[in-house]
Write a protein that binds this DNA or RNA. Structure first.
Lengths: 208, 208
DNA sequence: AGGCGTATAGTCCACGTGGACTATTTGAGG
DNA sequence: CCTCAAATAGTCCACGTGGACTATACGCCT
């Protein structure tokens, strides 16, 4: 398992790899699935970015071409599949981003794709995050207190204060999530996306 | 007041304009000030971005060169000043980003620089945001409820749920902020940055 | 007095993003 | 039956970002 290449993934790269875990696809299908799942909430879905990303992933050996399809008379479609290296890199990325507290945008994606990891794995990562969050919260609190004490005017601290409120809310939320995961309150593991199942079935039927 | 150019600013652009409101400066001084004020919390401070940004702002007529200084035998430094157009664009940007709820990163910057607006102005913008936030919160709540009802597995809703918790916390915080602004609990208006005052004084002394 | 690290001030380049654009094909409405 | 919109599948380009790099000058230690 050589690990020199591409430990770093872009948000779109993560989504692409995660989608290929569900089955081989061509890029345009990724777009449709992401749109159907309202992934615009997490990142901006644009063709340009996607096709570039797919090209990059292939050059890095994280995905492979598995053939050029042609359905009816529509333009050719290149279908891709996930390599073992790609699956590894995805899992590593998820672990890293689930454990860290910088890069909030990345964390949201990691969380949304957390079902690609084992339950125990997720719990462990979130406990790491919980620790980091706690420390950051303490530092933040001290920083704010110190600034007020030094007479820094409130108007420049407003954003600081908001951040503390949000940090606090997140701390409580993550505690409850870890609890529920440990209590096995709900299932975990690879998921059939109910929203898009019908579409996927349709596609498979059409391919035969 | 023709307003065709550059209603759109990058985060770094906003910071640069806001800094120039405090006095004429050269880019390198902006870097030092931003570092001193720990603005890395809000954006990544890099020379490349800054110098590009300054060049762009100048081409767009939002700032002007006011002379090329030379202190001792150090490299030349080009000093810039804020134009009237620049001041207008800054204020407009702040109003827009303070009122909206998309673009969270931009909002944080707008909030941190909100002291560049009048108190009444800020209150009005925040009330707009408060409304949008409320609506978004309701929609989010309904969406989550609907998804659960349709049997979408909890594991894919985790990120959704977190977002709702954070939205809720933000709602409460913004209410309290608006209250305190209306009650005039603390001062408002252009601020002498205590943290960096000493540095600025030093600089002025050195220039004479 | 000499050497070395750091501050000063800025340039340059590779990458990722996102929006605009193209060209064909299918389906729905009049 | 014809038209026109929407879907299909993808290319291309301009911009902003961030990191690496350069080169001089000042201050500190020995």
């Amino acid at each position: 398992m050589s690990k020199e290449p591409a430990e770093r993934l872009t948000p779109m790269g993560v989504m692409a790899l995660a989608l290929l875990r569900e089955g081989d696809m061509h890029p345009y299908e990724m777009v449709r699935l992401m749109r159907a799942r309202r992934d615009e909430r997490l990142l901006t879905i644009t063709n340009g970015t996607l096709y570039h990303t797919v090209g990059r992933l292939q050059r890095e050996g994280l995905i492979d071409e598995v053939g050029i399809d042609r359905e009816g008379n529509r333009p050719e479609r290149t279908t891709y599949t996930l390599t073992d290296a790609g699956a590894d890199v995805l899992v590593d990325w998820l672990r890293r981003e689930l454990s860290g507290i910088d890069r909030p945008a990345e964390f949201r994606i990691a969380l949304a794709e957390a079902h690609n990891l084992e339950r125990a794995d997720v719990i462990e990562c979130l406990q790491g995050r919980r620790l980091a969050l706690d420390e950051s919260h303490a530092q933040h609190r001290d920083g704010l207190r110190g600034a007020r004490h030094k007479g820094v005017p409130e108007q420049v601290l407003v954003e600081f204060e908001r951040q503390e409120v949000l940090l606090d809310a997140e701390l409580r939320w993550i505690d409850s999530l870890i609890d529920r995961l440990e209590a096995e309150e709900f299932g975990w593991g690879p998921t059939a996306f109910e929203n898009t199942d019908r579409y996927l079935a349709q596609r498979k039927a059409a391919q035969q």
